[in-house]
Design a protein around this nucleic acid. Structure first.
Length: 155
DNA sequence: GCCAACGTTGGC
DNA sequence: GCCAACGTTGGC
């Protein structure tokens, strides 16, 4: 028995990597996460888990598409690449520090669900939704089935 | 570009 | 173990 499907939200700056980029390449290793909490969430992910693809640091922040987990966690190769901006000299292949999953394109939303709209439903989403929790800047965070359903109903 | 909020680092 | 300094995130 495979564990029950779980849901997540993953942020990306569209100038670096957008939902259109994901649509073009099909799937992508989620490199560059250097936050332990976000890393730990990625290590919990299972094949087929649902991902809300969020655009941050852009004119209209919000959820722009749906993706899914297509490879479970493995060491982020950029931590070993000296030329990479994600290089981490404290990491070794025997003892990797950073892990990632591969994310696959599912579909774009018919229209974006903006951060403003998400905030307008803060009460229904509940205080455990980290995206709009004060002071939280996690780039990878969990969503409950109810939160997933509500967010996509705003599409 | 600004800056609030937060995480990490490193001296002590 | 404390905490100041620094770096990063991400909305505005």
């Amino acid at each position: 028995m495979s564990p029950r499907k779980r849901y997540w939200l993953m942020k990306s700056e569209p100038q670096d990597f957008s939902i259109d980029d994901l649509a073009r390449v099909g799937s992508e290793p989620w490199t560059g996460v250097r936050n332990y909490q976000a890393r730990n969430f990625m290590r919990e992910m299972q094949l087929g888990d649902g991902v809300l693809f969020y655009h941050s640091s852009t004119e209209i922040p919000g959820i722009y598409g749906i993706a899914e987990v297509v490879a479970t966690a493995y060491p982020d190769p950029t931590q070993f690449e000296r030329k990479s901006k994600y290089f981490d000299e404290r990491a070794s292949r025997e003892d990797p520090r950073w892990w990632l999953v591969d994310v696959g394109f599912v579909r774009k939303l018919k229209r974006a669900v903006t951060l403003d709209e998400i905030r307008a439903h803060a009460d229904a989403l509940g205080e455990d939704f980290a995206l709009i929790r004060k002071g939280t800047r996690l780039s990878v965070l969990p969503a409950t089935p109810a939160q997933w359903k509500l967010l996509l109903s705003l599409e």
